[in-house]
Write a protein that binds this DNA or RNA. Sequence first.
DNA 1: AATCTTTATCGTAATATTGCAATATACAAA
DNA 2: TTTGTATATTGCAATATTACGATAAAGATT
Lengths: 110, 110
Amino acid sequence: MGTTKTDFFTAEQNELAALAKAIGHPARIAILQHLLKVNACICGDIVSELPLAQPTVSQHLKELKNVGLIKGSIEGNAICYCIDAKGVEKLHKYFGGIVDTLKKQKINCC
Amino acid sequence: MGTTKTDFFTAEQNELAALAKAIGHPARIAILQHLLKVNACICGDIVSELPLAQPTVSQHLKELKNVGLIKGSIEGNAICYCIDAKGVEKLHKYFGGIVDTLKKQKINCC
DNA sequence: AATCTTTATCGTAATATTGCAATATACAAA
DNA sequence: TTTGTATATTGCAATATTACGATAAAGATT
C-alpha cells in the first residue's frame, strides 16, 4: 500500500496526473512564475528567488524537468532553465476541453 | 521537515498548487473524466468505475470536493456528484495565461 | 423495528514527498 | 594547479499520501 495503482489507469490519465502533480507544489509554481516573469532563460538566480535551500530547489527543478515543464541547458558553469511550452500546452488543452464540454452541458443538478 | 513551507509562498501560489495537486492522481483524473462523460450528476456508480476500494474512492472524492473541483449533494441515500466548473476554469485560465505569455515571448534559448 | 444500500470515517501499513546538511561534480578564473 | 562558483547527488529525518479492512452513519425498504 501507499503506492499509486498506476497500472490500472490509462497512459493519458497517468500522464496528466504526473503533469499536474509536478505543478502541485507552491515552490514549483513559483519557479514557473519566475521563469515566465524574467522572460528569458535563467542562469543562476533561481535559488536566490526562493525561500528554500539550494538542494531543495535543485530537486524541484529536476521534477519539473522530468515531466517536461521546463528545459535546462548547460551554459558555462551555470545552467539555463526556461519553460517548456509543450507541457504547459498539454495541460491547457486538457482543461480547455473540460471547460468546453461543461459549457455545452446544460445540466446543473448539484 | 517533510512539510511544505506554505507560509513562504503567496496565497495564489498555494491555491494553484492545491488545485493542481488534487488533479495529480490518476484516480482523480479518472473521476473527473467519468463525471464529464456521463454528462450528469452521478449518484452511486463512481466506485464501480474505478479499480479501487470504496473507502479509497471516498477519500479521493473528498479531496476533489475540498479543493472545489467537484460538488456533491445528498439525494436520498445516495450522493450526487458533479464537476464544479469554477475550479476547472481557474486552472484553465491559469494555464491559458502561461501559454499566452509564452507566445508573446520570442526568446527560445534552451 | 430489522435489514439493505450507500457513503463516510477510523485505524493502520506501505510508500512517497519535502527539506536540508554534507558532499560531490563541473567548469571558470586566478 | 588551486580556488571559487554553480548545480547535482546522497543520506536522512519529518511529514504526507495512498490504499484498504473494519466499522459507523444515514436514509430506504421490507
